[in-house]
Design a protein around this nucleic acid. Structure first.
Lengths: 208, 208
DNA sequence: AAGAAATTTAATCATTTGATTAAACTTTTT
DNA sequence: AAAAAGTTTAATCAAATGATTAAATTTCTT
């Protein structure tokens, strides 16, 4: 899921891309200097341009990767045919684990899609899982199993409760005086709390 | 709540600060050029340095203001002595309205506190409303009115459900094919949905 | 109104930064 | 092994950028 390979075993091209991912994701597009990336990769700036033409092109690859990793889980979780309440649990567990390993990704994606929408928009595939999820929700609503809710709210509720604690970590841990371990512990607790809250709200009678 | 005064009626000093707030908040620290601010304010770059010494000092003022506006509502809402479920409703209503007027503030605060923690940390006053909120929650828990929950989770749940939809707007509206009006309408719906969801989860028996 | 202080401006500086060039070096092909 | 292709490097460029200066202009004080 993350950069795991020994840096020296990578080709120059891959070293650059790995370094770019690391620096762009941590600092954002504007604050990242091509020299930062070159230094992180242990290569010359010219090599960066040799392989990737420009800072912008390289950034396009990095944010594309980030968006893929980010949305991949959604398709996988909501694409299955297990009960909805299981999907909810899977989603929360999976994304909390993912964000624990990639803590800078949420702010990176959200701030870049606000500040550089032209670079991000083309990469966002307008729906794919939405039709399926919509159908699933509508069926459960008609059967009287869950309350009426639009897919947008359903989706926003889950992602909000899962991703926002990572986005707000610097502020919250400061404001609440929480150490990194405290915060990590709290996030573990949310693997139970968040699904319970959503299911509790959604289901008219508790599911199996 | 926002910049409302006629720009020409402001002193140069205030024009600069207003312009800086606008540009910094929309584009972030790194992407903002002092020339952008000067242009937005309709003044010379040298005046900017005359009044505010450096880009960094000016930024400090702007992010300080943003943090104040952001946390002011929390103190006001949770400081009162009305029932908790009313505070929840007030909070959500108030912040959705606030963010509708200041849509760039959430991403600005979150991304800057991740990317420039040294500039932000000093401005965050370690708790103030927390002791009061903690006491209130503990009392309601002991009385068997709400379920056991830590202030951190309580707080994160409310802010997540309220603020995240603004943070994710560019991505969500693209992914879900929602116009600005659609999105605004959806946010209005959340003024009811979010408090209901939180209260429904929190209260063991429905409050008055 | 004259002089002093404060403000604003155009011009300029030094550094940073994305990008290029040409040469050196390495690997692959024949 | 020689030639060609691919890769890496040091040096350099041009534009952008935060900041300063000194002069011009305006406002304030007496």
């Amino acid at each position: 899921m993350e950069i795991s390979q020994d840096i020296d075993s990578l080709s120059t091209e891959d070293k650059i891309r790995a370094a770019a991912a690391k620096v762009f994701v941590r600092k954002g597009y504007a604050a990242t200097k091509t020299r930062d990336i070159a230094k992180e990769a242990g290569i010359n700036i010219a090599s960066l341009h040799y392989y990737y033409r420009s800072k912008e092109k390289l950034f396009g690859l990095v944010i594309g990767e980030a968006l893929n990793k980010f949305s991949q889980g959604m398709d996988e979780v909501f694409g299955g045919d297990n009960p909805l309440h299981e999907k909810i649990k899977n989603f929360v567990n999976r994304y909390i684990d993912f964000f624990k390993i990639n803590p800078y990704i949420p702010v990176f994606i959200m701030s870049e899609s606000q500040n550089n929408p032209e670079k991000v928009d083309q990469l966002v595939d307008s729906q794919k899982l939405m039709p399926k999820l919509t159908k699933e929700l509508n069926e459960l609503i008609e059967e009287g199993i869950i309350r009426p809710i639009s897919p947008v709210h359903f989706f926003l509720n889950i992602i909000s409760l899962t991703a926002f604690p990572f986005i707000a970590k610097p502020l919250m841990s400061k404001k609440m005086n929480l150490s990194d371990d405290d915060y990590s512990q709290m996030l573990e607790e949310r693997k139970e709390l968040v699904p319970e809250m959503i299911i509790n709200f959604l289901y008219l009678k508790k599911p199996s």
